[in-house]
Write a protein that binds this DNA or RNA. Structure first.
Lengths: 163, 163
DNA sequence: CCTGAAATCTATAGGTA
DNA sequence: TACCTATAGATTTCAGG
């Protein structure tokens, strides 16, 4: 994947903004929206995909039909902060499909994770397994999601706009 | 949107799992993968969309090409916890496109947000505007994302599997 | 960046178990 | 009800200007 030196012009940004919200729009409709005929639009799209700017496409699935469920935000602190400690932890959580998001943070918390479980008992079982996995976790805090409030695609195209 | 009383069988779950990772797969290829001819597969897909199980489709965009940028996780506590206080806050953040995720939490933190900014100065300007918006914010903590570690679609289909 | 056209896909009609 | 085949029309992809 090569993403350096990619020049994104207005049209590329518009293509990106549209696909962030309508990932399954037809290519001909997309071309219409950005005022191009289908070939050049298609070529831009292919380049954006090949360059890794567009990483992939995902269906967004409602959680409601899968209820009951527990969506949990977890903050974590490691015992020790050597490079290898972080690496071990990060390798470790890869093996937990229930942990579907994880970011390393600066500022007093080492990691924030998201866990999807059937209920809190299931969540606790997952965490017990995680703690038993020897990943050097010092402590963690559990916050159950009580209500999803807002969710949009990351507003990346704003970053390219004038302040 | 009606999502109650939706019965999801093995094939629906398989369709969902595939579309979570390959949102732009063609319907004929999808049918092949779930061992159906295109018509019944197409009908299932339409029902999943109409029932709101599939909420939409999104392109996943790499952040790297938009660097420099600052991705920030923010935890928030409100001054007061009446229904109207939460409602005002939630209405308020809707007006901030830079805040692209927000969940209400149980357990000592009221909300966790994600903010995408150009840099930390830009982030601070956004937070200043937010604090000036009169949303009843008592205090907040800032955690800069130093490294995205893991990200998969929410593993919803696991919820329907036997423990 | 365009046109044009073959290959492929989509959406529907009509039929079987 | 759930699946199948067949097919017209739309879309995608690519060659050539």
């Amino acid at each position: 994947m090569k993403t350096n030196g990619v020049k994104l012009d207005e049209r590329d940004l518009r293509i990106i903004a549209i696909l962030q919200r309508e990932g399954r729009i037809s290519k001909s409709e997309l071309a219409r929206r950005v005022h191009l005929s289908s070939t050049p639009c298609w070529e831009r799209l292919r380049q954006l995909e090949d360059a890794g700017v567009i990483e992939g496409y995902e269906a967004r699935i409602a959680l409601k039909p899968f209820a009951p469920l527990a969506q949990v935000v977890v903050t974590m602190e490691l015992e020790s902060h050597q490079t290898e400690d972080f690496a071990r932890f990060e390798r470790g959580i890869a093996a937990f499909p229930e942990i579907y998001e994880c970011d390393a943070l600066g500022g007093g918390i080492d990691y924030v994770l998201r866990v999807l479980a059937r209920d809190l008992e299931d969540y606790q079982r997952i965490m017990d397994r995680l703690l038993d996995a020897g990943l050097g976790i010092r402590r963690y805090f559990t916050y159950v999601v009580t209500k999803p409030v807002k969710r949009t695609p990351p507003p990346v195209t704003r970053l390219a706009e004038p302040p």
